[in-house]
Design a protein around this nucleic acid. Structure first.
Lengths: 134, 134
DNA sequence: CTTTATCCTTCAATTTCAATAGGAAAATAT
DNA sequence: ATATTTTCCTATTGAAATTGAAGGATAAAG
C-alpha cells in the first residue's frame, strides 16, 4: 500500500489534470476538493515543485500549475519521488537497489518472481502519465 | 517495498522449501542462514503456524515444517497475511477495500490504472507458490 | 502598504516497525 | 524423575517514519 503522502500527491495531480484550466490552482482548493489536510498538501506540492514537476506563483492569482506537460510526467516518476522504491524487495529495485546478503541473486527464486512483478508494474507505471489520470 | 517482516517470512519459507528434507527446521538454523534476528523470526513463524501454513513440534528433534504442500501455498496468501494489502490504494484492494471519499471510483482514472497494476501483480502472486521459490 | 498566497523551518503527536527480554509449556532423552 | 531442548506467549522497548500543525518569511498583485 502506498503511503498517504503518495496517495495525496497522486490525487492532487489528478485533480489538477482534470481541470479544464491550466491553473494556477490554490493549495486550499485542491485540499478541500480531494480531502487532503492543507499543511500536509503544502509540503507535498512544494516537493513536486522542487523536483521540477510543478511550478508556482505567489500572491493573488497565484497557486500551483504544471511545469511540464502532464502527458510527459510518468506515474512511476511521481511514485519514486514521493514513495521511494516501486519494487517489493531491495534486491530487485532498479533505482534503490541493495544487494542481498543471504542468497545468490542469480539463483534465487524469490528474486526472480519479484523481478517479474516489478517489470509488470513498471510496464504500466512508466507508460502511463499524469494525463492518463483524467 | 515490503516490510522487513514480510521479506523475512518469504525468505524463511524459501529456505525451508529449498531443503531436501521436509524438516522440522529450527528457528535458529533458518535465522542464521537467512540472516534474520531469531526472536523476530520466532514471531513470524508462529504467525504462519496460526494461519495454518506451517506446523511445529516442540522439544528435541522439533522445529517448524510445512502444514500444507508448498505447491499449494500462494505467495499472495503469505503477503496478505504478513503485509496486508497487495494493492497500492485502499480503493482498489480486493481483500482490504476502503471506499474513496473524494472521487467517483467508476470514473476515476487513478482508480483504473491502479486496478490494472493490482491485476497484473495478482496474476503473478496468485499463480506462484512457495514451491516456485526453489 | 495591504492582501493574498506560496515558502520554509521547526516541531509534535501518533503510529508503526523492528527487535529484545524473560519465562511458560511441551516434547525428548537420560 | 529430571535435565535438555525447543517452541509458545506476553510484554516492552527503542527507533524511526508518518502525518500533520504552527508560525512566520518571502514574493506578487492591487
Amino acid at each position: 500500500m502506498l503511503a498517504k503522502k503518495t496517495q495525496y500527491a497522486l490525487k492532487a495531480l489528478t485533480y489538477m489534470a482534470e481541470q479544464h484550466s491550466a491553473g494556477p490552482f490554490l493549495i486550499a482548493d485542491i485540499g478541500s476538493k480531494k480531502k487532503i489536510p492543507i499543511k500536509f498538501l503544502e509540503s507535498i506540492l512544494l516537493e513536486l515543485k522542487k523536483a521540477g514537476i510543478l511550478n508556482s506563483k505567489k500572491g493573488k492569482g497565484g497557486g500551483y500549475f504544471f511545469n511540464q506537460d502532464p502527458s510527459t510526467i510518468q506515474l512511476a516518476t511521481i511514485m519514486r519521488l514521493i514513495e521511494g522504491p516501486i519494487a517489493l524487495l531491495p534486491c530487485v529495485s532498479l533505482h534503490f537497489y541493495k544487494k542481498c546478503n543471504d542468497c545468490n541473486e542469480k539463483k534465487c527464486g524469490l528474486n526472480k518472481i519479484m523481478k517479474e512483478v516489478r517489470d509488470n508494474t513498471l510496464s504500466i507505471l512508466e507508460n502511463r502519465t499524469v494525463q492518463d489520470l483524467v
